[in-house]
């Protein structure tokens, strides 16, 4: 792995006695796009906020861009772009005014030039005089990205940037993210979408405040030691409930007309589906998807948590 843009260990944070982030360690390579995944309320936002100095960790620490995340928070803010989960630019300012504000607050030179360039690049030029509050979700998200990257940060933290955005806008957004990473920007992006996770170079999976898996998508799938069978055939979806109760079956997930049966013990899994391996049903070993792995991880994390 190349030099780490983010390298933090043992991060802890509690709110009102509830421990939201538990001993989280994250390492993000420079110029990599790391997907930050986990169920709702798992501490993703809190972790991102600790990385950019918006929250002070109760304990733990480390570096971002080679700077101490607690002592050098001010310097990290200068070199980091942060895009919040909720649109947090000024709704009563126009698109251009919001960008100009970002340019000034970061003390940039050639401000009008940079703002114009950003507007052009994101296709916002025609909307420069529109009030941000009146933009649709997709445009708001583009504007927010423009504002977060205007000062050419070395690190970009995105908190569920594509929530509520249509597929086309999402794809454009991700193309932009990859273009930025191509220029050397490090990106840590939290998301719930598996297709987005697969677009990341690396994945970090957090549940109940604990980091439980990390690596490339293939590595995470391999680490899970999950085995999956894919069953197809008429009426197979109606068998889901029946099969789910068998020993060795940890997960049954319908995928359209097919069924994914997963478990960590291959022998037990095979035994479980044996009674159903007859025509017209067709079974084939399958590669577990990221989603299979995450649902499996989540179930285990909950078992440990309770």
């Amino acid at each position: 792995m190349s030099a780490a843009a983010i390298d933090v260990q043992g991060l802890n944070k509690s709110f009102g006695g509830r421990r939201v982030v538990k001993d989280v360690a994250i390492r993000v390579g420079e110029g990599r796009i790391t997907g930050f995944l986990g169920p709702n309320g798992s501490g993703k936002t809190t972790t991102l906020r600790m990385l950019c100095g918006l929250l002070t960790p109760d304990s733990g620490g480390g570096t971002a861009l080679g700077l101490d995340i607690i002592a050098d928070a001010a310097e990290i803010k200068r070199q980091t772009g942060y895009m919040t989960q909720r649109f947090s630019l000024y709704e009563d300012l126009t698109v251009a005014e919001n960008l100009m504000f970002a340019a000034r607050v970061h003390e940039l030179d050639r401000r009008s030039e940079r703002v114009d360039a950003a507007l052009e690049q994101l296709g916002l030029a025609e909307r420069r005089a529109q009030l941000s509050g009146t933009l649709s979700g997709g445009w708001k998200q583009r504007l927010a990205l423009a504002a977060a990257t205007l000062h050419e940060p070395r690190l970009l933290l995105l908190d569920e940037p594509t929530a509520g955005v249509d597929p086309l806008a999402r794809r454009t957004f991700w193309d932009e993210i990859h273009a930025l990473a191509g220029r050397g920007l490090t990106v840590l992006v939290s998301t719930h979408y598996m297709d987005e996770a697969e677009r990341c170079h690396d994945i970090a999976y957090i549940a109940y405040g604990e980091l439980i898996a990390r690596g490339t998508a293939d590595e995470v799938i391999a680490q899970s030691q999950l085995h999956t069978w894919r069953g197809e055939g008429p009426g197979i979806d109606r068998l889901a409930r029946e099969i789910a109760g068998k020993p060795g079956v940890e997960m049954v997930a319908p995928f359209g007309l097919a069924l994914h049966i997963s478990g960590t013990d291959p022998a037990a899994l095979e035994a479980a589906i044996a009674p159903y391996r007859q025509p017209p049903l067709r079974w084939s070993p399958a590669e577990p998807t990221l989603e299979d792995v995450f649902i499996h991880l989540m179930a285990h994390a909950r078992d440990n948590f309770q």
């Binding site: 100095g53 918006l54 980091t80 919040t84 607050v105």
Partner: peptide
Amino acid sequence: ERGTMESLLATPAQ
């Protein structure tokens, strides 16, 4: 209330 403080705090503004 509008959440803009989060963005403002993430900038270098003192």
